[in-house]
Nucleic acid binder design. Structure first.
Lengths: 189, 189
DNA sequence: AGATGACCGAATTGGTTTTCTGGTCATTTC
DNA sequence: GAAATGACCAGAAAACCAATTCGGTCATCT
């Protein structure tokens, strides 16, 4: 089988299971059944290998988000579904969850960077949906970059941070209703 | 002069200058010109002393925020001014800034707790303004707790986090306009 | 020519010793 | 004799250092 693919899969498994820092190149080599040096014929170094894998993860995430988008449904419903899906992915997907933890606990620079990139991907995904809906005339003309950023940060705050300072967490319906009557309401023409 | 006051002032200076962890009780005693044991006749322990000081800081912050509130001006203008003032306070006030740094760098539990308390104070401040404006009929009936939380998190995101991932920071006017046409717009009756 | 793993210097870890610090309390002070 | 004090203690943190680990290279092997 394709040696590069073997290495990618081995690395994915190891990064997902142990995180970036705790994964060693030798371990990846062992899982992939190749010599350590072989890895370096396909990937410049550990960080580049990691970036490649995160790139793949981002694609996966975007795919899942795309899958919940429906034609002929309001922007709000689609944006809500997509954001919820991606934030669920953030907690569910082994690698993404590991990266989030690692950034909190160790602040590995490579991990921080990949986390930023992933968040940027989410924001960009939403931005594109906004642009499309603005073009269709469903939304008024807004700075889609800023709105996408606001939506991401707001959802993240209510889904991730709310529980830190409050006892009963908010249900998805409560969140959906709240954003409907605040941010989304303000975007309509 | 009042010994308790001397101690409070010495502790405030030391916490502001070196942070919670790096401030020792002996150092406070030395600055206050009292024996170390004397501190413990007024304050149960280091953490309680710290809490007392943060309580004072929160009052100071609320006072500054209150000072920018004007009667007969729209909710949006007042909320914006108050939030900006408090977030400026967060970066400018020696002690608050030190606490924020320390929480990032060392995660001292006592510091984390006080940071939460301070943020909660900001949210509550805004919540009360919302409630007042709802009562006056200037805003429609909303869940003021959620709206206050959203406003705080959103302002924090655009003022603190935006620059981390973007090159040119947003001007205050841009931020004000953006929130006017999104969140604030949705709160009007 | 492509794969490999022994090898290297730098970084990390783990264990040990030393120093520091929050808090107490017997003694001193006024 | 009530309030203040600083020597003192135990546990936590820091400093230190030896031993190990790891990313990356390259001479050798297939």
């Amino acid at each position: 089988m394709d040696r590069k693919q073997e290495i990618l899969e081995a690395a994915t498994r190891s990064f997902s299971l142990f995180g970036y820092k705790a994964t060693t190149m030798e371990q990846i080599a062992k899982i992939a059944n190749v010599g350590k040096g072989t890895i370096y014929t396909f990937f410049e170094n550990k960080e580049v290998l990691f970036q490649e894998i995160v790139r793949g993860m981002i694609c996966e995430m975007k795919q899942e988000a795309t899958n919940v988008i429906q034609e002929g449904v309001s922007f709000q419903e689609n944006a809500h579904a997509a954001l919820m899906k991606m934030l669920e992915f953030r907690e569910t997907h082994q690698l993404y969850a590991k990266i989030v933890d690692e950034e909190k606990d160790w602040r590995t620079p490579a991990v921080k960077q990949m986390l930023h990139q992933t968040e940027q991907a989410i924001v960009t995904f939403i931005k594109e949906k906004i642009d499309k809906c603005v073009a269709k005339g469903e939304l008024r003309q807004v700075n889609s970059e800023l709105v996408a950023y606001l939506l991401f940060k707001a959802y993240l705050a209510f889904i991730n941070d709310w529980n830190v300072t409050h006892d009963e967490s908010l249900s998805e319906v409560e969140i959906a209703n709240f954003f409907q009557e605040t941010i989304f309401r303000s975007l309509l023409v």
